[in-house]
Design a protein around this nucleic acid. Structure first.
Lengths: 208, 208, 208, 208
DNA sequence: CATGAATGAGGTTTCATTCAT
DNA sequence: CATGAATGAAACCTCATTCAT
């Protein structure tokens, strides 16, 4: 947990620092990320970072927690959970909305967390709780609409769903990491065609 | 590429060194892996490692290349490609045979490679070429048996297949990272039940 | 170029560090000089040196630049250039004043630079520019006084002058490298006799 | 001193090894010269070098001794000492004959020795003895011809002479280190003009 | 509170030298 | 004798963390 000092900062300043850290962690990974670079790119001194966080690990962990929270919040704001089923969710979120737009960096960070096995254990709790709840809710909505097969355990359906959507997301994000550019219309079209096919695979597999 | 000196070593010694390196890389990741620990656990001196490899990165890269090669070789030996379709392959490989038995460490290494974005670029070529070829062959076999739908592009089917099988593999391997024990019969049974369900999902999705 | 951090240090501290480095470089040469010894003898930590300079080479190069600058400054302060001709310059500088007194170490460093062929290229520019300008000025003064032959190109006269004065300087400095003691009156006398003879040789060669 | 084993080698092999070492020492200096590179470029194993010489330093020292001996021998062969005076010697040797032709590498090595202060002490003896004897002889010849002033001590005349000839040699060799090419006629002409002027300066200084 | 200079543990890498074959 | 694999001491350099101002 950050120190009280950190929480007394103006919210925007907190955010500047956290985003600077996230950017660095995404680019270099935990070990190669330098506290001094984070400080510099956030426009504060290295010493200040250590007034806010006990060490680099705590900074990382809080970025994770904050990032997950923010991400889910944005998700909710955009598509109220109650009305969604897993398929419309996939169609909406993974592809079009968040991923390729303003929160691309956040999304990359959340993915990169899987690549830090030593920290995984400590971030897993937050991550898992938040996202699983979300997806479990989605499944319930879906089932309520009568769109979901009943002979397979929910836990497995979640695994299966995440596997496919994650892969899809990763696949498309990988192409736009470097470029801060937006997709061309042609690319958007290509993505949408793939998305539809993936949905078909998901539905025919999971649906009844 | 390793030096000539390395290739002149007895094959067993080469293997001891590479496996020691792989174990270290799996456990700690590239950055935290210590050359001195690798040397010690391989029973050679730190200096020797540097007679074989220009630096830690070259060692990692060669481990990747060697590991992929060996892994595919073992796969081939165990299940002749020609007779396999994607579903029987999944049933065989991912679950029962290699992964959870003698080459667990190798499999973990290959998965961990995805977590080293800075080295990915350099390992990707080998990895991709080898594994994709393999899976493309599997798809052809599967299609020849009339088990595969025709309205979806092969590239996507590969993605989809890898996504699901990978996730499954990871899920089960994660529980046995420490290698210290074998699965109990009860666990084996649980895994086999899950496997069946995953296969159902895959088939109903991809099959026709 | 050193970092900003270095330039923000008190001037005396900067000087302590540079002189410690110069002493080490003179004693051991670039390759054998140890950064840790420099740090210790400057009374700072090894890590600090690396906050000031990117690496040992940058430290060396800045020592060179700083040393040349300081040396020429002292020279100017002591004997205003305008009034000097090459012969009085030799009599003053090389022998009596700077060389064998407080800036002996600096002078040795400048000479030792010629023994680092790999770094020469990078120090040469500064060195050459500063010293050649100086000597060219001296020649002009000398010529204005009607003391210089006109049938030989200036460039060659400079070479010739430097060759002889350098050799003389080296010859006498070599005997006092260890700095531990001053010259005895007898030695001073011997040196002055030699100096006079050298001047005779120089004058007969260059003069008219 | 090399081991007996070394002296039992065929003379050509001895020479190959020594020249390989000399080339390496000239290029990189003592500290950066690698025994393994010397061995490789001589076409023998690293181990063999250590059968011939106790360590790198002994190798260097013997190169020095051998080089000086060979150099003087070639000098003698070319211009019998008895007939030479310092001026004709300068005209012949420094400029035209040895320096810029087959023994350029040897000459460079001898010059580079001055840049290794730690080894100087140990090579100085050989070097000094050989070359000084030579020059003292030259001076005597010169004086016998009535070409040399008598009011200056011989020791100083030697210093003076070496200073000028050395500088001249260095100046011209520096331009041809990299290129194994010969001088163009235009360059030869330029050099000869300079040589003449240097001789004038020398003669006016030393001559009577 | 903010700053940034100072620190030093810890890791990588080099290469002269040894020695078994 | 020749070879080249093995060794490890020694040096460079990095950067998280501390702390005086």
């Amino acid at each position: 947990m950050p120190t009280d000092t950190f929480f007394r900062l103006r919210d925007e300043k907190q955010e500047v620092i956290l985003r600077a850290a996230i950017r660095e962690f995404v680019e270099k990974g935990f070990d190669r990320a330098k506290v001094s670079d984070i400080a510099q790119s956030a426009g504060v001194s290295k010493g200040s970072i250590y007034q806010y966080f006990a060490d680099k690990e705590e900074l990382y962990l809080y970025c994770a927690q904050w990032g997950i929270h923010l991400f889910m919040e944005k998700l909710d704001a955009r598509m109220p959970l109650e009305s969604q089923d897993v398929f419309s969710y996939f169609a909406d979120r993974v592809s079009k909305s968040l991923v390729l737009e303003e929160e691309r960096e956040l999304a990359l960070f959340m993915q990169s967390m899987a690549g830090e096995p030593l920290l995984m254990e400590k971030t897993f709790h937050h991550m898992y709780e938040k996202t699983n709840d979300y997806i479990v809710n989605l499944l319930e909505n879906t089932r309520a609409k009568g769109l979901l097969r009943r002979d397979i355990e929910d836990e497995l359906l979640v695994e299966y769903f995440i596997a496919v959507t994650d892969r899809f997301q990763r696949r498309w994000m990988a192409r736009y990491i470097d470029f801060s550019r937006e997709m061309t219309p042609a690319e958007t079209q290509a993505m949408e065609r793939e998305l539809e096919q993936m949905l078909t695979l998901l539905k025919n597999g999971m649906g009844c």
